[in-house]
């Protein structure tokens, strides 16, 4: 007997490209960045990598990275 179970499989993009939610996008100025790692550490969605590149397909534009950056190296820029 085989039971029918609702089992989901892990997949990137399981909630769609959440980058489309943004009205402002965070942009990092690498000249100001001191590589402290705060933006990577505090991003709730893990959309900043350890080299501080932002994945714009998924970044939701919450702005937390801007707030936790001690060097004011990240600014929110309005999406076109």
């Amino acid at each position: 007997m085989s039971a029918k179970l609702a089992i989901s499989k892990p997949k990137t993009g399981a909630s769609g490209k959440t980058g489309s939610w943004r009205t402002f996008k965070p942009v990092v100025d690498m000249d100001k960045c001191n590589k402290c790692g705060n933006c990577y550490r505090f991003c709730p969605d893990g959309t900043i990598d350890t080299e501080f590149n932002i994945d714009y397909d998924y970044c939701k534009g919450c702005g937390i990275c801007v707030e936790v950056c001690p060097k004011k190296a990240i600014t929110m820029v309005r999406e076109d």
């Binding site: 709730p44 969605d45 939701k60 534009g61 937390i64």
Partner: peptide, 12 residues
């Protein structure tokens, strides 16, 4: 957690 969940932006 793979990019991304559908949690609100800024969800703690």
């Amino acid at each position: 957690i793979l990019k991304t969940t559908s949690a609100c932006a800024g969800c703690s």
